[in-house]
Design a protein around this nucleic acid. Sequence first.
DNA 1: TGTTAGCACTCATCTCTTTCGAGTGCTAAC
DNA 2: GTTAGCACTCGAAAGAGATGAGTGCTAACA
Lengths: 349, 349
Amino acid sequence: MELSERKQKILQAVIDEYIGTAEPVGSRAISKKNELGLSSATIRNEMADLEEMGFLIQPHTSAGRVPSDVGYRFYVNSLMRRYQMSVEALEKMQAIMADRVNQLELIIKKASLMASTLTEYTTVVTSPKLTSARIKKIELVSLGFGNVMIVIITSAGIIKNQSVELNLNDVEASQLSEVLNRRISGLTAEELTLDKIKEIGKEIDESFNIAPKVIINMLNFVYEAIDSLDYTEVYVNNAKSILSYPEFSDVGKAREMLAFLDNKDNLVKLLGSAKDGVDIRIGAENEFEELSNSSMITVNYSMNDKTIGRIGVIGPKRMNYAKVIASLDCISNQVDKILYELYNKEGDV
Amino acid sequence: MELSERKQKILQAVIDEYIGTAEPVGSRAISKKNELGLSSATIRNEMADLEEMGFLIQPHTSAGRVPSDVGYRFYVNSLMRRYQMSVEALEKMQAIMADRVNQLELIIKKASLMASTLTEYTTVVTSPKLTSARIKKIELVSLGFGNVMIVIITSAGIIKNQSVELNLNDVEASQLSEVLNRRISGLTAEELTLDKIKEIGKEIDESFNIAPKVIINMLNFVYEAIDSLDYTEVYVNNAKSILSYPEFSDVGKAREMLAFLDNKDNLVKLLGSAKDGVDIRIGAENEFEELSNSSMITVNYSMNDKTIGRIGVIGPKRMNYAKVIASLDCISNQVDKILYELYNKEGDV
DNA sequence: TGTTAGCACTCATCTCTTTCGAGTGCTAAC
DNA sequence: GTTAGCACTCGAAAGAGATGAGTGCTAACA
């Protein structure tokens, strides 16, 4: 079914208005803006049609109209005007992102912060699931009485570290580091098999006076550290922004939403199910009941042309779609670019 | 002015009741519990006295009474019954805290999580301000094309790392590491003076083919990394819990509070001004307007008998003081103990 | 003299009703 | 096809009781 151009313009006007006010939009309000040169009566008729066609909803007889999910979808697909990022915003973004602190995790966190700052909505990001990260270096540092810090640096620049109870002096620590480096560096989690671990354990056992249990413990940590790279981290930014929207003026609803945003499992699943590129989910298009009154827009970011994570913005259904899309697009480009510069050239990630 | 024992009992009953219900407490409610064996009329008279003396407040003529800040203060100082930590809670805490991952930052985060889990209120922690942390080890790891990861490990087990643009192969990286370690390890931030940095820069300049700007850049990072140990980190946990309390059923108030909790500067100042040991601030006793309807309880935790940070619980004025105090006390003991075991023995922190 | 029962009074809250007005649908005229 | 006009609808706001929890005061009681 095709919408006449006039109907499209009216639908667009209704949605634009509703995005600004969060109040049902009446025919007179549209007519008054005088962009169409039509009287309220005419617009009324058109709006009645649009309602019948499923693009608009009337909350009650004497109220104006509110866009339906279908209406938003049509808006997003066909009507929405491109949002132009301001030069200042763009420059600021480049400045922040190009800051010399540029570890993977930090980049993602900054990207998320940026998205929530630009859009003023809640942002959710998943951080890379790097199945093929390699161990670059393992370092043992004696911290003194019975404690040693294990530091693992991976090819993705991710660092895992923790201290374990292990009585080594500086010399022993560096000797043990040497063994571990020789045996482990360059491997991925998959390649560090149980057999391999046993083998390494045996070598250490022969050369050092360390209890087998401690060795196992230490190697376990190493394994877990690499293995844990497989798990997706999630960061939420600016969750409190939902309290600014009349959609959540009911504290119960706000709490429900915040609880949802607190549950990492939900979020991983949510972002995991999104499509690559700019993906828009309006209201009930989201698989989670809790988001049935919200919309979510996501973009992926990649390394080696492979999606490794997503940035998502969650806001009321009447969100400023154009702006959010433009912002996310920009951000994902920046992230891709920085990740490329950092790791891609090397090609071993 | 002394309170008769009966008045004290009535005040206690009123506060205990109010803590549970968040509704003004009437004389009949107290009388019905029959713990005092008095009629509502008698209690009414006593409550009128208590109001006159400033311990209770009547929101309006025909309402029950609500404790005033003075009332809460008296309750906390004199009436409150000791809260007994349950054996399960204690065991669980010990298990979690004793987990082998025990770096300083992680310990603090865990302590905070624990506090918010136990009390179900919002928790705020400041993490150590370690002015005298020493550099244990500096490591440069080549990440490939033009990037090097700098890792700094301090005596407090804190790790700082970031990648900088620097074209070194593995051999050069380890040579440079050697120079840096020789010159810098063992120093504190204060001892790493500008002169020293220049000196080191000169040595590197002579032995390596690295642009001076890059050297400065790198040494700057090292300096900032140690220096930044002087800044207090703040973590907030379970901020959303405030939405569960009728005190914040007004979304505007809730938003205000969440905004306050989002501002790290506020929180550093807030916790910084607390007294050592268990410190209780009721309502307007807090220096921040935003907390005038809340109470905050803090404990410090220490290393070498020196306070290095605080854990605070923020909740409605009618919070379960006894339970929060018991929980925080327990947690700070655990933290102190773990910190002692980890670092204190060494004595160089 | 301290305690209690009883009663008139207060006032927030709930419910019911009324009013108001934004917005509609329909009709008739242009 | 468009528009002016008008009756109609119905949620939200405002007003009017009714309700009841809780008080203060008084007088009687132990």
